[in-house]
Design a protein around this nucleic acid. Sequence first.
DNA 1: ACTAATGATGTTAGCGCTACCAAAGCGCTT
DNA 2: AAGCGCTTTGGTAGCGCTAACATCATTAGT
Lengths: 348, 348
Amino acid sequence: MTAEKTPGRKRRGAGRVTLNTVAKQAGVSAITVSRYFNQPEQVSPERRERIAAVVNELGYVPNLVAGGLASARGKIVAMVIPNISGPIFANTIQGFSDTLSRHGYQLLLASSYFSLEQEENAVRAFLGWSPAALVLTSHFHSAGTEKMIAETDIPVIETWDYQPERDPVQIGFSHYEVGVAAARYLHGKGYRRIAFVQNSAAGDLSALERRDGYTATILELGLEPWVFTPDADRAPFEAGKQAMDALMNAALRPDAIIFANDNLAAGGLLAGQRAGLKVPEGCAVLGFGDYPFAEMLLPSLSTIKPPALEMGVMAATRVLESLGELPVEHEVSRLNLLECLLIERESA
Amino acid sequence: MTAEKTPGRKRRGAGRVTLNTVAKQAGVSAITVSRYFNQPEQVSPERRERIAAVVNELGYVPNLVAGGLASARGKIVAMVIPNISGPIFANTIQGFSDTLSRHGYQLLLASSYFSLEQEENAVRAFLGWSPAALVLTSHFHSAGTEKMIAETDIPVIETWDYQPERDPVQIGFSHYEVGVAAARYLHGKGYRRIAFVQNSAAGDLSALERRDGYTATILELGLEPWVFTPDADRAPFEAGKQAMDALMNAALRPDAIIFANDNLAAGGLLAGQRAGLKVPEGCAVLGFGDYPFAEMLLPSLSTIKPPALEMGVMAATRVLESLGELPVEHEVSRLNLLECLLIERESA
DNA sequence: ACTAATGATGTTAGCGCTACCAAAGCGCTT
DNA sequence: AAGCGCTTTGGTAGCGCTAACATCATTAGT
């Protein structure tokens, strides 16, 4: 029944079901079918019904690429995140994606592995899809990325950090304050030789801010900062073991250790236990991230829980608000500071 | 310098930098600039250089939406996965995404939460973006989804399972055989009262296949199957605890337990330990998934590791091959059976 | 030297959809 | 009865790009 009468040379999308096919079949104009999908309330009920029947019969799927081109805004949102499989970022992605998909937006995702160059490439490619919004992680970007986000007119959101003086919408928390809180908490518990174990993964610049918060606070408390840096090429779990072994063999052992994340902390915990160390009596252990296994360890791991899921949901909410898909509560704020939660378990 | 001379009424994408802007500025035709991006080897070096300079100066970013419409194939690949934040699927996504992005393809991602309806919605929306390929999880789909994947002409790949008789490309492993292997392994170790703890999450149909493999094998070995199903509304970790408590209070305790996944197993392990149970002497524990924390537990968790990352990489490879982006090794096979690995640690 | 083959570049016509306007239909007021 | 505002519908002209073909310059072949 596909009556192709075009005589000439060019026939690319032959015989595909398009808006026009549906329109003809339903006896309405193309634009009406378009409205049926985008502003159904503007189409009379009878036509809606007729169009629905035809759509169903033909199995028509709207071509969003064409729609995106015509309207210059696709229902798609781009996100670049350091890595997808990390236990914490995953929650942010999930919260973001789910909130968006409830409103018919799709997620375009890429990981940067903390590489600014990879981030830039991803952003460039994404902008070519003219997404409705762009979500990045942290405020550390290459010059090229900065240029692009300054020039684009779509909303840009930065998560997982919080820099009041920056221009894009900020949804995050202060890593520096996390370092401060960790040091103060252990100090309050009576610990005095508090060490900090750095992230072995290069490029995680936010982790350095946590360390800086720690260092500053320790000095302020009149104690001595003590930062241990594992070998850069070790996996986090192994790096944690290395750190614990090294610290326990030091002349003057620490009585508490802050690990830059829970993976490191778990490694430290296990190495300590295998060496007969009692936690927290012999040495307290505090992590960061509240990874899913933190409560599964023995002793369970005290840690600082970042608002990972909340950031994803809030990022999506801000995006939807600025697209007019969601009523704006209060006033869209450029600065959204969320709180971390210190979860006190057995290890500290 | 943006000389707009169009007199008429419609001006939508006003003053945006397009292919044409670049072309004029560089003194070449639009198609040459297009070639510069898509088949650079067809453009002479001098022009390449000139175009590169202009692109850089204007900060031009190709509009992939327009390109996708014109060429009827966007450099985008869609994936639907049960959930993004699960520790195992995350690896598949990561492997998939990374392999693709190395070839300039972007990832469109959605999660279905094991809901066939949500999967169908995601697939429908994705097809509208005319992706280069579509990747799904498992072979359980709604009728609507089946219809769409039958009618579309883009490659469809199913991962995380393996059904030889199905049409789409299969990349996965046999869940049934995992159940068989788990039962055999414990039997070989001398255990005789082997229980199986089901997944509390409804909708994970693959988990049921693992159970079936277990049941069949246990019967074949002349033992008695024993399947425990936790309350459906419990989080996995809690469900594992519940299962362990219940099984340990049974009249005749099991001497080994297979948990449908590592989260359940971790809960079981912890509940057992808190109750003074020695693992594996009192009761062996075997998980599934090799979640990152499996080696961090005490005792470390024996488990079956699915080829999560490999499936992602292989899915991407097959996609790229069928798009002609990658030389085809051997012959593109529709059936790709990968192996799980039983990782023997301390718990079983 | 003349034609054929090759490679680089340009011209034209859409891809399938929506923005923009215009117009028609309807109930109501004055 | 004419005018007004409102809703519903349709016609037209692109959105920015690339496929397909056409053209031109260059080189090779006899």
